[in-house]
Structures are given as structure tokens and as C-alpha cells.
Computed example of a mutant assay.
Amino acid sequence: MQNRQAIETTLNKLFDAERMARRLHDDLAAMPGDALLDVLTDAIAGAARESDDDEAALRLVRIASLLGEHEGPRAIDALIDVLASEHPEARQAAGEEIESLAYDRFKEVAQGIERALKRLPVGAPALPELPYLIAEVPEPGVPRLIGQFLGHKDPDAVAAAIETLVEIGDPTHASMIEPLLGDTRTVELADDGGDATSEVTIGELAEEALGLLAPYEGEEEDGVA
């Protein structure tokens, strides 16, 4: 009985903490945008200096949630900065916000991605994540935006762009991939089981991608005939 009471007491405290967190979130979200974004961008930098990984991830997850409620380039850039962090939980939270915003405000997100391609360094975790976040957004500009990743110096970003264009499945996008044939840069890809990785070149990925897109083209020609 005492054990049950202790559990119920702790559970109610958890409910109280969640209610308080939601109230504080709403209070912050209602504050003037520029002032809030100043604080949030400083908090992102502070989280990057945090030695406790759990604490850093906790802060970044909450920051991402707040950023998702604001419009404008500063909010998008800050979300992408969270996506570029080393903490998987924070990247997931930022990715979900970016993907959701892309459906509602694609132009704003697209411009933020174009800025990210110019300002983020090679190796930034956000670069290979971004193509997947926009791949299913029903906007005609998505393939062109993903195509910009194909020319990036980050091979993981290039590989992600190749894979997402294959997922989209439009054979007309093959022409964007063809220049990468013979590219000797290497990336590590997870095997089907996800337990191991294998190293392949960008050129090999491009060749495989073109092979996957080619059947679609053949089927279309057969249908027309």
C-alpha cells in the first residue's frame, strides 16, 4: 500500500511539473519575438558549452519547441542550428519542427535551408538530415532544393540528396545525379539490418540511383507506346 501511495504521489508531481512546463512555455511563446529569439539563440550557444549531455539535450529540445512557434528567418536558422547539434534527441525535436513548418511555410523553410547550405561547415549533422525532412512536402520546389545538396562539399549531404531523389522516384531528376558518376568521395551507409555499415563512393551511389530511376522511365515509355 505504501509503495502504491508513493508511486501515485510521484506521478501527481510529474503531472504538476508538466502543467507548469506547459504554462511557462505558453508564457515564453507569447513574449515579443525579437527579444525571445535573442535569448533562445544565446541559450543554444550555452547548451553547446554544457558539459552535461542530458542537460544540453533537455535545453535544446525545449528551445526547438519554442522556435517552432515563431516565424521569420532567425527562428528557422536557430532551428537548423539545433538540428546541427551533437545530441540525437535535440536533432529529432528540431527535425520534427522543421518538417512541420515546411508543410505550412515552405518558402520560409526553403530559404533557411539555402542559407544553411552556405553557412554550415562540412560535417555539420544538419546537412544530411535536411533533404529527408522536406522530401515528402508536396511542393514543386522540393526537388530543385534537394538538388542544391548534390553540389555540396559534404559527402554525407550529397548522399542524402541522392537517396531522397530516388525516394521521390521521378526519372526526370536523373540528370541532376549524372554529374556525380565517378565521384570518389566516400560515405558510410548503414546496412539493411542497421547493425553494420559499409563504405561506398558517391559515384557508386549515383550509379545505383540512376539504375533505380531508369526502370521508371522505361515503364513510362512502354505505357506511351
Rank of each mutant, 00 (worst) to 15 (best):
S85G: 03
I44R: 01
P32M: 05
A94F: 06
R22K: 14
P88G: 08
L24W: 10
G46M: 04
E69S: 05
N3H: 12
R91A: 06
I168F: 04
E219A: 15
L210I: 09
P128E: 06
I168A: 05
V82G: 06
L150R: 02
M31V: 02
A102V: 04
D77K: 07
A94M: 07
E71P: 01
E50A: 10
R105Q: 11
G46E: 07
P131H: 00
A21F: 08
D191I: 03
K118S: 10
L83Q: 08
L11F: 14
L14H: 10
P215C: 09
R4H: 11
I134M: 05
R105L: 04
G194M: 14
S100Y: 10
E220D: 15
R91S: 06
M31S: 15
D222G: 07
P131E: 00
H70I: 01
A35C: 05
L180N: 02
L181M: 10
E167L: 13
L213I: 06
A124E: 02
A102M: 05
S198P: 00
L150D: 01
L67H: 02
L120T: 08
A209W: 00
A94L: 10
D53C: 07
R19Y: 05
L130N: 04
R119G: 06
G193I: 09
A35M: 12
E204C: 03
L28P: 00
D38F: 08
D38Q: 11
S175L: 11
T164N: 07
V61F: 02
V200P: 01
E188F: 10
A78E: 00
E86N: 13
R74T: 05
A160P: 04
E208Q: 13
L24Q: 14
A57M: 08
G95M: 08
G218H: 14
A48V: 06
A160W: 01
R4W: 11
G194D: 12
G147T: 09
I80A: 07
E86Q: 13
R23D: 11
